Simulated scan of single mutants.
Amino acid sequence: MTGDIPQPRPGIGTHPVTGAPYAVTTGPDGALWFTLVGSGRIGRLRPGDPPRYHRLDPDCGPTIITPGPDGALWFTEYRAHRIGRIDTAGTVTEFAPPTPDSGPFGIAAGPDGALWFTGTATDRIGRITTDGRITEFPLPRSGAFPSTITAGPDGALWFTMNQADAIGRITTAGAVTVHPLGVATGPVGITSGPGDALWFVAIGSGHLGRIGTDGVVTEFPVPDGAERPHAVTTGPDGSLWFTGWAGNSVVSRSPTGVFEVHDLSGSGTEPHGITVGPDGAVWTALESGALVRIDPARAGDPG
Rank of each mutant, 00 (worst) to 15 (best):
V24I: 15
D29C: 08
G30M: 09
A31Q: 11
W33L: 03
W33N: 10
F34P: 11
F34R: 07
T35H: 11
T35M: 04
L36A: 02
L36N: 15
L36G: 14
V37E: 14
G38I: 00
G38M: 05
S39R: 14
S39C: 01
S39K: 11
S39W: 03
S39E: 15
G40L: 08
R41L: 01
R41Q: 15
R41K: 15
I42E: 08
I42F: 06
I42K: 08
G43H: 12
R44Y: 04
R44C: 02
R44H: 10
L45E: 12
R46S: 13
G48Q: 09
G48I: 04
G48M: 09
P50G: 12
R52C: 00
Y53I: 02
H54V: 08
H54L: 05
L56E: 06
D57F: 03
P58A: 10
P58K: 03
C60A: 15
G61R: 10
P62S: 10
P62Q: 09
I64F: 02
I65L: 14
I65Q: 04
T66K: 01
T66E: 14
T66S: 14
T66Y: 01
P67C: 07
G68N: 11
G68S: 06
D70C: 01
G71D: 12
A72D: 14
A72W: 01
A72L: 02
L73P: 00
L73G: 00
F75Y: 14
F75R: 10
R79F: 13
R82A: 13
G84R: 07
G84F: 06
G84Y: 06
I86M: 15
T88I: 15
T88G: 00
A89W: 06
A89S: 14
A89V: 07
G90M: 07
T91W: 05
T91I: 13
T91K: 13
T91E: 13
T93P: 00
T93M: 10
P97K: 09
P97M: 07
P97V: 10
P97L: 06
P98N: 08
T99S: 15
D101M: 09
D101K: 12
S102F: 03
P104A: 05
G106Q: 08
I107T: 05
A108R: 07
A108Q: 07
A109C: 00
G110R: 10
P111H: 15
P111Q: 13
G113P: 05
G113F: 01
A114H: 12
A114C: 13
L115R: 00
W116E: 08
W116V: 01
T118D: 11
T118P: 07
G119T: 04
A121V: 02
A121L: 14
D123E: 09
D123R: 10
D123V: 09
D123M: 07
R124G: 05
R124D: 04
I125L: 13
G126W: 03
G126Q: 06
T129S: 15
T130G: 05
T130L: 04
D131F: 03
D131S: 14
D131W: 05
